[in-house]
Amino acid sequence: GSSGSSGRSIRLPETIDLGALYLSMKDTEKGIKELNLEKDKKIFNHCFTGNCVIDWLVSNQSVRNRQEGLMIASSLLNEGYLQPAGDMSKSAVDGTAENPFLDNPDAFYYFPDSGFFCEENSGPSSG
């Protein structure tokens, strides 16, 4: 555990407890639905899209709007509660995008202990 946080500091509502939020997101009843998503001929198991996370935060009334949801999701990402899956979300974390988290249906994320795995979609090869 390093105490210094690198990069820009994000101002959050002080009422937000990321650890508790993470547990809520993982709730099987009310949390974010983990899906098997396909992209670039790969299948991502136990993951979800960036806009799903923002949708959930807003509907859960954890945030007032999508912009605030983006800040929360970015914090969760920085703290390691969310992990990027796939090229798009990984490149955003590398700092090419304004926010490390993308409110985007093509950006995939997963919980670090969810049993996430990615496999090649090797269907029947027709030449």
Results as ranks from 00 to 15, higher is better:
Gly19Arg: 12
Ser125Val: 13
Leu57Arg: 09
Phe116Arg: 04
Asp113Ser: 12
Ser2Tyr: 04
Lys33Trp: 01
Ala20Ser: 08
Val93Gly: 00
Glu79Ala: 13
Met88Gly: 00
Asp106Arg: 10
Ser24Tyr: 05
Gly80Phe: 11
Asn121Met: 10
Lys26Glu: 09
Leu23Trp: 08
Arg64Gln: 14
Gly127Pro: 05
Glu68Leu: 12
Lys33Gln: 14
Asp106Val: 00
Pro100Phe: 01
Phe117Glu: 14
Ser125Cys: 12
Gln61Asp: 12
Ser125His: 07
Phe101Tyr: 14
Gly69Val: 04
Leu57Asp: 07
Lys41Asp: 12
Pro112Glu: 01
Asn78Gly: 13
Phe111Ser: 08
Cys118Phe: 00
Val93His: 04
Leu102Asp: 08
Tyr81Met: 13
Gly123Ala: 13
Glu68Arg: 11
Pro124Gly: 05
Leu37Ile: 15
Lys42Ala: 05
Asp55Ser: 14
Ser59Asp: 14
Thr15Ser: 12
Thr49Asn: 05
Pro84His: 04
Val93Asn: 02
His46Asp: 08
Asp103Lys: 09
Gln67Gly: 11
Arg11Val: 13
Leu70Asp: 06
Ser2Leu: 09
Pro84Val: 12
Asp17Pro: 01
Ser75Trp: 02
Gly7Ala: 03
Thr96Met: 02
Ser59Cys: 07
Val63Cys: 14
Arg11Asn: 11
Gly86Tyr: 06
Asp94Val: 03
Gly95Cys: 00
Thr96Arg: 08
Ser122Leu: 14
Thr96Leu: 10
Leu35Ala: 09
Leu18Ile: 15
Cys47His: 06
Ser91Arg: 15
Lys42Ile: 04
Ile32Lys: 08
Phe108Cys: 05
Ile10Asn: 02
Glu98Cys: 02
Ser125Met: 06
